[in-house]
């Protein structure tokens, strides 16, 4: 298998550092606009739910957070696999950058779910609910990946070993998604990704989709910024970075 020439630039730290710096503000700007629009739509334009009233509006944070927490893990696993197979340091750097962001969104999904659970179900937390259990496992996978890395002094070794944990943990992502279908759970079944179409009216659905897209851009904004930091950390001793620092004013 021969890779096209342009692809090899993704293995070059200075090029990726520059790309991340150039794309970051644009992606961040789009994220801010989308989240502002989605927040207005969700809190002001969308009608209250017939059963839950206004407390359903936490969906506009909860669902995007949960979505990003799983999407981030899939990207982490793919990056870790690429890093493991091609010994590509930048792929490991991307996986490392994702872990704390993914953990934060997972925490946000769990916390907003608990806040919503009290007025809706009558309980903050149920240990035996499969959806809650496997989403909590996702948080532990992120934290475990970070803890495992911290256990190694040698960065290359940390990259290789943690990549395996990162890759195998991806098994949990489909389990989270299907947990409400495979087992009886307190958490309700899917509202949007259904074969017979979403079971939410359009005026409530549109702000939700805007928020999901906004959170996705927000995630990539954070990722690019963290990736830049990770590259600086890993390339401290290189000439391009020293030159970049000397060139910059101040």
């Amino acid at each position: 298998m021969k890779l096209p020439r342009w692809f090899h630039r993704f293995g070059s730290p200075p090029w990726v550092y520059g790309l991340a710096g150039a794309l970051g503000p644009w992606i961040g700007g789009i994220a801010i606009v989308l989240i502002a629009a989605g927040t207005f739509g969700g809190l002001v334009l969308a009608p209250p739910d017939y059963l839950q009233g206004d407390s359903f509006r936490i969906i506009y944070i909860h669902v995007p957070s949960a979505y990003v927490s799983m999407m981030a893990y899939v990207i982490l696993a793919v990056a870790a696999a690429i890093g493991f197979i091609w010994r590509l340091k930048l792929a490991h750097a991307a996986a490392v950058s994702i872990a704390p962001i993914g953990a934060s969104f997972t925490f946000l999904a769990l916390a907003t779910g608990a806040i919503w659970g009290k007025p809706t179900w009558g309980t903050f937390w149920q240990w035996t609910d499969p959806r809650i259990m496997f989403e909590l496992l996702l948080l532990f996978l992120y934290l475990g990946y970070m803890a495992l890395r911290a256990a190694f002094e040698d960065r290359d070794k940390a990259d290789r070993v943690s990549a395996i944990l990162g890759v195998v943990g991806v098994v949990n992502v489909p389990i989270i998604h299907y947990s409400v279908i495979w087992w009886n759970s307190l958490h309700q079944g899917p509202t949007i990704s259904r074969l017979d179409g979403p079971t939410i009216t359009t005026d409530m659905l549109v702000p939700l989709l805007v928020m999901i897209l906004g959170f996705t851009f927000f995630f990539f904004w954070l990722l690019l910024s963290r990736l830049q930091g990770e590259i600086v950390e890993r390339e401290q001793a290189t000439r391009w970075l020293r030159e970049l620092v000397e060139e910059s004013p101040g």
Partner: peptide
């Protein structure tokens, strides 16, 4: 506990 279903709609 109340088990909420997957339907969301205005009143």
């Amino acid at each position: 506990l109340a088990k909420h279903d997957e339907n969301y709609m205005p009143p």
